[in-house]
Design a binder for these strands. Sequence first.
DNA 1: TATTGTTGGATTGTAAGACAATCCTTCATC
DNA 2: GATGAAGGATTGTCTTACAATCCAACAATA
Lengths: 215, 215
Amino acid sequence: MPLQRVSSAEQVRDHITTLILNGELKPGTALRETAIATSLGVSRNTVREAVLLLGHSRLIRHEMHRGAVIAEPTKDALVNLYDARRGLEVGAASVEASDDVVAGLKQALIDLEAAAESGNDRDIVAKDLAFHAATVRNLASTRIDNFYSGLAVELSFYLGSLAASRLDYAEDEFFLEEHRRIYLAIAARDTETAVRYVREHLDETIRRLQRRLES
Amino acid sequence: MPLQRVSSAEQVRDHITTLILNGELKPGTALRETAIATSLGVSRNTVREAVLLLGHSRLIRHEMHRGAVIAEPTKDALVNLYDARRGLEVGAASVEASDDVVAGLKQALIDLEAAAESGNDRDIVAKDLAFHAATVRNLASTRIDNFYSGLAVELSFYLGSLAASRLDYAEDEFFLEEHRRIYLAIAARDTETAVRYVREHLDETIRRLQRRLES
DNA sequence: TATTGTTGGATTGTAAGACAATCCTTCATC
DNA sequence: GATGAAGGATTGTCTTACAATCCAACAATA
C-alpha cells in the first residue's frame, strides 16, 4: 500500500487548479495570497507554497513582487502550444503504430463520436484531446504522455476561457471526419498519410482558434 | 528591457541545483532544511520554497514528513528517461530535416569530435547531449526543446554520479561513428535510415549504462 | 495639457519563533 | 527475535513582523 499523505499546500494547489479549469478564476485575475489564505482557512505561507507548486504548470504567470496571475490565452501562447502538439503528434504519426495503440485509438474515436452525438461541448473537448493523447501514446513513453497531458490541460483551459462564445464543435461537419481519417491512416500503418492528415488537422484547428481569438 | 529580479528562493534553488549537478550532493542524500538555511544565511521558509521550486525537476524526490532526497539513478529512472529520449529523437528523425536543423547538427557534430579529441569526459557528455538536442530541434517546438533539455540535465546528473568509475567514452571506437552516420542520414533526408541509426544508438547506449549500473 | 515628482496604501518577499504531526532510532519487554 | 514504548530529530503549518516593491492617486512643474 503506497499510503500517500497530502500536504495542505498540495490541497490548496489542487483547489486553485480546479477553480482555474472551471473558469471560476478568469484569465488575468490576480491571486491574492491573504485573500486565499483567509478564505481557505490556512496560513499565507501555505498559500505561497501552493502557488509555487502551481508554477510548474503554465496556468499562472508569476512575477517578482507582483504575485501570480491567471494565464491569458494570447496568440503566442496558443502558437507555442500548437507547435508542441504538432511536434509530438506528427512524430507519433510517423512511426508505425502498435496494436495496443491502434486499439486505444479506436476506443478513443468511438468515445469522441458519442460525445459529438451528445452535443456537450466540454465533453467533446475532453474526448477530442483524449483522442490525440492516444496517438501520442505511440511514442511509448509515459513521461512524454505526462508532458502531453500538461499541454492538454493548458489547452482545455484556454478553450474553456474562449468558450464564452460557444465552440460549436458539433456544427463543424468536418470535425469528426478529420479524426476518422487520421485513425484509419494510423490503423492502416500508412504513416505518410497519417502525418499529412495530422498536420492538416492541427493547422486547421489552430486557424479556427486564432479566428476565434480575434473576436 | 525585461528587467528580471531574482528572489532568494530562486537563488537557493539554483545553488542547490549546481551542488547536485557538480556531484557535491550525492544521490540519496537528504536535504535538511535547517542545515541549508543556516549555511546559506536564509530562513527555513526560503529554503522550503527553494525545494518546492526544485521539485519541478526530477533531481530530487519529495515525501511527506520525510523531506527531499537527491534522486538516485535507479534502473527504472534510466529506462523512463531513455523511453522519453527514444520517443522524441525517433520522432524527430522520422521527419525530413530543415536546412537550419542540419546546419546546427553539423556544428554540434564538429563540437563533439573536438571534445572527443580532448578526452574531457564532462565535455564529451555535454557535447553528446547537445548533439541529440540538435536533432530534437527538428520537431520545431521550443517547448519540446525545453522538455528535452530537462531530460538532458537529469541524464547528465545520472552519468556524473555513475562516473566514479569513469565513462570511458573516448575508449569506445564506435561512439563517434554512431553520431556521424546519424548526422549523414539526417542530412541526406534519409529518414528511414536515420530512424534506424537513432534507435540502435539509443538502445546501445542504455545497454552500456545498465551494465555500468550493475557494477 | 502633458509630463514629471511625490506620497501612501496594498501586496509580496523574507525572517523568526512556535508547536503539532510524523518519522526514525534506541531501548526495554515479552 | 519480535513487539512495543520513549525520545529526539525533522517536517508541516501557523503567526507575527517588517523591509522591499508596486501601483494608483495626487501634486507640482514646464
